[in-house]
């Protein structure tokens, strides 16, 4: 009897766990979602992103050839103009390059490389940066000042230049590019997370957690990390776009992905050679697609930033 009463009291104080559909209903009623529905650019960004991810995942099922497979290329098809300029060409919608590679297929496969690098590099940079940011914000002291001085020095140089020199040391390759982007990208995360940690650290519930004797790592993961999560999501959205652009630029300069795994930037670079003979489609379409990807990401990223973190402006 006594026991029952105790559990009754307890259950009336513990908020009921919400099911997923209830949470979803809450989300649909939230202010953020209302603003989202009203923002044309955020919706446009979402549509672009869904389209791009769809193309990257399913595109290879529909392309006329596998641009990596040299056997499927035929020099007979080289130098074909896009369909809308050359009515005889019904097979290669966006034309072909000097080796008879279908530009559209190359874009589909190239976007996979670009997106892979953008997303994985962002994940790596965020994990590394968040860890350093949490450590320096929570523990302070010497560790903090070393990490933050390093960040200051790095921030006074443009990230493109740092990435360029790192790639000079590392040499071409997908793994090397990921590493270079990680070393370039961690700073923003470390700074944002450290700032947020500092402001959360002095709040009463963290003090309470410390008083009841929770270990530091638990306080950091369970109580501080969730508070900095929105800033991280906002930052990451924009970072993916930045990384895709940086990778494209490096690849264009010949310091990015290897020739065997052409990203969109590399396709532009290949097309530059034949641009002067008037074959604009080989380089214009891949570049346009890079722009579309980054544009979509930035549209959504802008909305998220305004919505969740006005200070980041």
């Amino acid at each position: 009897m006594e026991n029952n009463k105790a559990s009754n009291i307890k259950s009336s104080f513990v908020p009921k766990k919400k099911t997923f559909s209830e949470k979803f209903d809450d989300f649909k009623k939230s202010e953020g979602f209302y603003n989202y529905k009203k923002s044309k650019s955020a919706i446009a960004g979402t549509i672009i992103i869904i389209f791009i991810v769809g193309v990257a995942l399913l595109g290879p099922l529909f392309t006329v050839q596998d641009p990596y497979d040299i056997a499927s290329l035929s020099l007979m098809d080289a130098y074909r103009a896009p369909s809308f300029m050359d009515p005889d060409n019904t097979q290669f919608l966006l034309g072909t390059d000097q080796q008879g590679r279908d530009v559209l297929s190359a874009i589909v496969y190239g976007s996979r490389v670009s997106l892979y690098i953008g997303i994985v590099a962002t994940l790596m940079a965020s994990v590394f940066g968040i860890t350093l940011g949490l450590i320096s914000g929570y523990y302070g002291g010497k560790v903090e000042s070393i990490i933050m001085r390093l960040a200051d020095i790095q921030l006074s140089f443009p990230s493109l230049l740092i990435a360029l020199f790192l790639m000079t040391i590392f040499g071409r390759g997908v793994t090397n590019i990921l590493l270079a982007l990680l070393l370039v990208g961690w700073v923003k995360y470390a700074r944002t997370v450290r700032g947020a940690t500092l402001s959360v650290k002095s709040s009463e519930y963290i003090e309470a957690a410390r008083v009841i004797g929770l270990p530091s790592y638990r306080i950091i993961i369970k109580h501080i990390l969730p508070n900095v999560l929105t800033s991280i999501v906002v930052l990451s959205t924009i970072q993916i776009g930045n990384f895709i652009l940086t990778e494209a630029t490096l690849s264009f300069l010949g310091l990015g992905v290897p020739v065997t795994e052409p990203s969109l930037g590399m396709l532009c670079s290949n097309g530059f050679v034949v641009l002067f003979s008037g074959m604009w489609w080989v380089t214009v379409f891949p570049g346009l697609y890079i722009m579309l990807i980054v544009f979509g990401i930035n549209l959504l990223g802008d909305f998220l930033r305004d919505e969740f973190n006005p200070k980041l402006k």
């Binding site: 650019s41 776009g241 652009l245 494209a248 630029t249 264009f252 300069l253 930037g265 532009c268 670079s269 097309g271 530059f272 641009l275 002067f276 008037g278 604009w280 380089t283 214009v284 570049g287 346009l288 890079i290 722009m291 980054v294 544009f295 990401i297 930035n298 549209l299 802008d302």
Partner: peptide, 25 residues
Amino acid sequence: MNLSIAGISVPSFWLGMLMIYIFGI
């Protein structure tokens, strides 16, 4: 504002090539 988002999304090497093609070639 929309053009400015496009401006930060466009790879600068590509823009240069586009200019070369349109104004030069």
